[in-house]
Every structure is written in structure tokens, then in C-alpha cells.
């Protein structure tokens, strides 16, 4: 048997490493956007359901607040930024799972796995579509809060808010990879992710500061990156006090984000390996 035979294919000659990743990313983005814009019903559903979801979410929260707080700019601003954060984190959490589920249903998983493309990039396509709906959601929220509540939105440090939200999105992608691995393994587990997302963001103080949570829950909150993302967004947008000194809070957030990404990537790799043993890689 000839060992290490010569590979006469262009893939070995072109675009290694970073360039290869960029080529893959470009392909994934093109495919997802083409798919999205060729399903008019998909776009219409997003345009219609995003504000409906917003109303269904905000109205019950308002019902629990004293009526005089409905006009309180501080409360409304907190809610606005909480909703933005919800939207951003949710985009990250759902992206990979949504993409893997779609590939399972399309029947393209095996064709993808026979390439050497990065698995994380292959399944990042879901984020493209989620980004569209995320911006749509933020626009709707902006219109909703400014037109209906006539609130002047506060934004003390736009760069700080942007940095916090982007980091939040990356941390959510880590969770997204874990969810994606579970989709690859167990297929249809969307409803479970919905519940986990509510619990996760609930205990991370997205709507209520973690300091007001019972102490056992607070301990869990401190181990989750979204606690610091929510806190930093409130700090940079509304000028609220941060939980920890800023440098320490950023360091904690970045460490946890990196840990989530590493955990997510290794879980995806492990599940792929396991599915190659069981033979369920291409099944849906």
C-alpha cells in the first residue's frame, strides 16, 4: 500500500487556513441569503411575527408593573435594552441549531461532512438569517418604544454598548454550538431550547438586576456570561452601576465567552465523531 500518496487536487493548493475559512464563510452566507430571499413566505412571516412577538412579550411584563411606572423613562429604557439584549442573545443561541436542523431536513449534511470545511462555519449560516430578524426586531422595538411610549431612549456610551452586545452575541454563539450539537445528536429539540433560553436570560438579570434575585440563583448567575453582558449594557447605555469593577467584569465576561466557545466547538466535534459510529450523521 502506498503511504501518503500524492493528492492531485486544487483544494490542497489554494486558500489554506484563514483564506479557506473566508471562502467557506462567503459560500455559507451566499447560500443562506439566497435561500432566505427565495422563500417569500419566510420573510413575510418574519415581518409579521416579529412585532407580534414583541407585543406578546412586553404587554404581560407591563401588566406586572405599577401603572405609574409605564411612563417612567428609566423603567422603559431598561426594558428597551433588555429586549435588544434578548434579541441579540437569542440570535446567537438559535443560529447553529437552526442551521443544522435545516441541513438535516434538506438532506445535505453528508455532502457537507465529506468536505474539510470548518463545521462551525458550515453551520453559521443560521446566524445570517437571524441577523436580519435581529435588526428587524431592534427597529420594531425602537419604533414601538418611541412611538407608543414616547420615551427618549438613553445611550450614554454607544461604543461600550456595541462592544457588550457583540461579546454577548459571541457568548451566545458558544451556547448555540452546544445547542447545535444536541440538534445533531437528538434532532428536533427546539422547544427545549426555548425553555432553556427563558430560564437562562431570566437568571442572568436581563429584565431584573441579579442583585434582586435570591442568593442561590445569584450564584448561578455569576457563572453565566449573559449576566455581565446585561450589566455592561445597562452600565454603558443607562449609566447604571456595574456589578464588578469594569476591568474585572470585562475579564470575567471574556473568559466565560472563550470557555463557552471552546466547550461548544469541542461538543460539536465529539457529537460528529459519535454520529459516525452510530451511523446517524445524515438522518433527520
Amino acid at each position: 500500500m502506498r503511504q501518503g500518496g500524492k493528492v492531485n487536487c486544487p483544494s490542497t493548493k489554494f486558500l489554506r487556513g484563514f483564506k479557506a475559512g473566508l471562502a467557506e464563510l462567503r459560500g455559507v452566507v451566499e447560500v443562506w441569503f439566497r435561500n432566505y430571499f427565495r422563500y417569500p413566505a419566510w420573510i413575510i412571516a418574519d415581518v409579521v411575527t416579529t412585532p407580534a412577538w414583541l407585543i406578546l412579550f412586553i404587554v404581560p411584563i407591563l401588566m406586572f408593573l405599577p401603572r405609574e411606572q409605564w411612563q417612567d423613562p428609566g423603567v422603559l429604557n431598561t426594558m428597551f435594552w433588555a429586549m435588544v439584549l434578548w434579541d441579540v442573545v437569542s440570535s446567537g443561541i438559535w443560529s447553529f441549531g437552526m442551521a443544522i436542523r435545516r441541513e438535516q431536513q434538506t438532506g445535505t449534511l453528508e455532502a457537507l461532512f465529506v468536505t474539510n470545511a470548518s463545521r462551525a462555519i458550515l453551520f453559521s449560516g443560521g446566524l445570517c438569517v437571524r441577523t436580519v430578524t435581529m435588526f428587524m426586531g431592534i427597529l420594531y422595538m425602537f419604533a414601538f418604544f418611541t412611538a407608543i411610549f414616547k420615551v427618549e431612549l438613553m445611550l450614554f456610551n454607544p461604543l461600550g454598548v456595541l462592544a457588550s452586545l457583540v461579546t454577548g452575541l459571541v457568548a451566545a454563539l458558544g451556547f448555540g454550538l452546544i445547542y447545535g450539537s444536541l440538534v445533531l445528536r437528538f434532532k428536533n429539540i427546539g422547544p427545549l431550547n426555548n425553555v432553556v433560553q427563558f430560564i437562562l436570560l431570566g437568571i442572568c438579570g436581563v429584565f431584573v438586576p441579579v442583585t434582586s434575585l435570591p442568593s442561590p440563583l445569584r450564584l448561578i448567575s455569576y457563572t453565566l456570561p449573559f449576566t455581565y453582558v446585561a450589566d455592561l449594557v445597562r452600565h454603558y447605555a443607562l449609566g447604571a452601576e456595574s456589578l464588578l469593577p469594569l476591568m474585572l467584569e470585562w475579564a470575567t465576561l471574556l473568559t466565560q465567552t472563550a470557555a463557552m466557545l471552546i466547550l461548544g466547538l469541542s461538543m460539536l466535534k465529539q457529537v460528529e465523531h459519535q454520529m459516525k459510529y452510530t451511523g446517524g450523521l445524515g438522518s433527520y
Binding site: 489554506r16 483564506k19 459560500g27 474539510n116
Partner: peptide, 16 residues
Amino acid sequence: KLSGRENLMYFARLYH
């Protein structure tokens, strides 16, 4: 929802 050519181009990118 992609054409035959678009499908091939996508995989060509994945093959670098």
C-alpha cells in the same frame, strides 16, 4: 431553492 450552478459553486467554496 438554488440553481444547479449555485449548488456547485457553494460546494466549490467548501472545497476551497
